[in-house]
């Protein structure tokens, strides 16, 4: 059964088509990554899934229903732009958000305290939000999203701006949610994080879906044409060869995409230079991302 299903969804802002005929199925219990450069349509897709904005065309079904909204208590949503009441204590804030998700006051208070303890923020429960560091605040925001143990958790850029230690804590917390049975959707620029955590990924670029499937499946589909080389003649040798589509020069090594038979490429290279390394490698999600989105995604992918 799918937690989320989109079919033929289109959203236009004026002349700009933010999302174009999007079909997507997100199975229950999976961790699904939404990747794509800024302005590609990730947040618009998420907002449509949550019925915060309405699509111009198409159908969206969430948790088996077409009218499931963000306000549904079975959903937890952490928006990309998130703020908190600075003057409230963490305890009161978490209790408030828990109650807005339909929890009884006592349950919300207890769950808030448990989560704070679990994420190593136990002693900050009675402090005011304004006293928290950025990393702590981000963890508190995460807790406010998952405090009511929702079946579907949607996190828009949950890791942006986190230091490696906090990032690891949050990663574990998300995987725990998955293990507890929740479906987790998150958007990210961080390809390695998506690669580590996601069962499946979905990449949107200029409003269109360009990738969708399991991480292993996506990488396998790009496997054959990526070859990592270390040549005595260096990069210059590659310039005259036919069939090479792109060259990613990494200094002493080069990563190339070759449209033909890789064995034939090896023979042609051996005829002109000494081949120190010839590895048919699986491209990283990063490489795939850059390959699809082009040079403009290069900067984004390094964020």
């Amino acid at each position: 059964m799918n937690a989320v299903r989109l079919s033929g969804v289109t959203k236009t802002y004026g002349a700009h088509r933010a999302v174009d005929s999007l079909d997507l199925e997100i199975p229950m219990g999976s961790v699904y990554g939404f990747i794509g450069p800024n302005g590609s349509g990730k947040t618009t897709t998420i907002r449509m899934i949550l019925h915060i904005i309405h699509p111009d065309q198409g159908e969206i079904e969430v948790l088996g229903k077409c009218e499931t909204r963000a306000s549904n208590n079975r959903i937890g949503y952490l928006p990309e732009e998130r703020g908190m009441y600075k003057k409230m204590s963490v305890k009161r804030l978490l209790t408030y958000y828990g109650m807005l998700k339909g929890m009884a006051k006592r349950d919300a208070r207890r769950a808030g305290a448990e989560w704070m303890e679990r994420l190593g923020l136990g002693e900050w429960l009675d402090k005011k939000v304004e006293a928290l560091s950025k990393g702590m605040a981000q963890k508190v925001q995460f807790i406010s999203t998952v405090i009511s143990a929702p079946e579907l958790v949607i996190l828009d850029e949950p890791f942006s701006g986190l230091d490696p230690v906090n990032l690891e804590v949050l990663r574990e917390a998300i995987l725990e949610l998955r293990n507890a049975g929740s479906t987790v959707i998150f958007s990210t620029h961080d390809m390695s994080m998506a690669e580590q955590m996601c069962d499946s990924i979905f990449m949107i670029y200029r409003g269109k879906k360009v990738l969708d499937g399991t991480v292993a499946g996506v990488r396998a589909s790009y496997r054959a044409d990526t070859i990592r080389l270390k040549l005595s003649g260096g990069r210059a040798v590659l310039d005259d060869l036919e069939g090479i589509e792109t060259i990613n020069d990494m200094g002493t090594e080069q990563e190339v995409r070759f449209s033909g038979d890789s064995q034939e490429l090896l023979q042609r290279l051996m005829a002109v230079t000494t081949v120190n390394r010839f590895e048919i490698s699986e491209p990283s999600l990063h490489n795939i991302f850059v390959r699809i989105a082009g040079p403009e995604a290069e900067e984004v992918a390094h964020v």
Binding site: A70, K101, T145
Partner: peptide, 19 residues
Amino acid sequence: EEKMQKISEVLVSAVTPFQ
């Protein structure tokens, strides 16, 4: 203030705007 501090979207993820 909620809008400026980006709290609004967090709130509408829990309740409808009308609520």
